[in-house]
Design a protein around this nucleic acid. Structure first.
Lengths: 276, 276
DNA sequence: GCGTACTCTATACAACGTACAAAGTAAGCG
DNA sequence: CGCTTACTTTGTACGTTGTATAGAGTACGC
């Protein structure tokens, strides 16, 4: 189901101690109860009798600081040290609010899901219109939070944001004549398409920014040496189609075009399932 | 065009010196001529009069060692130190064969593309059959080389593998009545779908492996605490559909099902473009 | 007023890519 | 033959990451 395929990256957190993990492992290894408690903010009432000094921050403040960093600079910019500095504390202080970076990512994911705009579907609206709205909203979400596509999303943090989003988006497929299982598959399919396109677009942006070299300049730099690659006798289709596309889009990767083209295909493909 | 959207991750390599880069920046910053030379293996003829000791390895040996590591353990396992150890040399030795890790990834990408199986399309074959074959081949490619989905693929290394693959796959859309620009868009669309599904499947596998906890066990661990999330009055659709899918697939993420479902949608969507 | 539970801080580790410089090797030229 | 020189290979070093661990400071409950 879609939920089983919609969760956050975790940075290793084995049962015993592991420091300085490298890869993006996704857990569920951290105490599930603690994570769910944080997601639904159970500790927020400052439950009387706490012995030591009051905490100077809140979980929300930590999450918001993390979001600001990640939205601006991607996951690379999201370091525990940076979050701490942003909040005027030392890095280790964060670990009083959040068990680790993995759980922080879970909280961030649920938070942006919860804050999405969800205008109610009008009853007379066609499913095409509703699914288009869902796709557009998800595209905007990914473009506004570029770190989302960097996450390994498996086993979603089942917080309010994830649930609310799932509930709303399933509603878009009303009227298509799908049973429950097919409805979940259809949503997964649409979200996969959107995420895939968003990833390509964000990658292209990041490369353009980091290389200080536009797509056009890149092609110019390579052109003199590309006789072999663009050899018309060896790669007739590739060189012809490649050139046509390069001319059509001025050598740039045109994400907007790819999205519009793809979304029409997606909708037509769903229509063939039997709906109107 | 597809090519502009099909290249390899690079780990920073600014004009001046930068050590120990962290994020996945994609370059083109490294000398393009040198990279192209490597891709097409121009230096392979050991061009007479070389002053020092002969090199004990070859670029191919380095690439193959890197492929073995990445295929087995993903990008995390692909460290310059590990490649060097695999070849019986010290890490810095690799830099005589390859300018850096970014270029090594370019070479790896082009190599696996070049080695793909490409049975010639039969003239009487339908485009649905041909496109299905291309999708299947790409799915197998990604599942066999899990590091592929971790790459940021923009500005492809224009080597023989990338070109040959592009040429072949464009041919699958013959008979659909597409002009050159639409043909490139269609291919991008299909490849995006396949990659998206493969990523989900690989992520699910990695999580299952790393967490030593099956999907079913994960659900069992969370179930007691999920009253809120699965609240039927608050999330009626989500809990109903979620449960139906969980039962249908036994709580697991069923990648095979998602692929088959999605591919049918993709083909139907393309068919609506006007082809047979 | 004192113990205790808590918050916050400082220091430390191993792993990464690779810059830098030294050490070793063999070809070309006298 | 021996010197120069280009090249290969190696050792060491840096700055960055998440977080384990241990210590220092604080305020509630008895």
């Amino acid at each position: 189901m879609t939920l089983t395929c919609d969760n956050a990256q975790k940075t290793r957190k084995g049962g015993s101690g592991m420091s300085g993990a490298k890869g993006k492992s996704s857990s569920g290894a951290g105490d599930p109860a603690r994570t769910l408690e944080l997601l639904w903010r159970d500790g927020s009432a400052a439950p009387a009798g706490r012995r030591g000094p009051r905490q100077g921050l809140t979980v929300d403040a930590v999450v918001d600081a993390a979001l600001a960093l990640a939205d601006a600079g991607g996951l690379d910019a999201l370091t525990m040290r940076a979050v701490a500095q942003h909040l005027g504390v030392t890095p280790m202080t964060l670990y009083t609010y959040v068990p680790g970076k993995a759980e922080l990512l879970d909280l961030m994911l649920d938070a942006v899901f919860l804050r999405m705009h969800r205008p109610p579907f009008r009853p007379e609206e066609s499913w095409r219109s509703r699914v288009t709205a869902v796709a557009d909203a998800n595209r905007a979400l990914h473009l506004g939070h570029p770190w989302l596509v960097e996450l390994r999303i498996v086993r979603a943090p089942l917080g309010p944001g994830v649930m609310t989003k799932y509930e709303y988006e399933l509603g878009a497929f009303e009227g298509l004549g799908l049973d429950d299982v097919a409805r979940d598959s259809a949503l997964t399919y649409v979200l996969g398409f959107v995420q895939s396109g968003a990833r390509a677009e964000l990658d292209a942006r990041a490369v353009a920014r980091e290389s200080a070299m536009s797509d056009g300049e890149w092609w110019d730099a390579h052109e003199p040496l590309l006789a072999r690659a663009l050899d018309e006798s060896r790669f007739p289709l590739a060189s012809r189609v490649g050139e046509a596309s390069a001319i059509a889009y001025d050598g740039l990767y045109d994400a907007e075009h790819a999205y519009r083209f793809g979304l029409e295909r997606v909708l037509d493909g769903l229509a063939a399932l039997g709906g109107s």
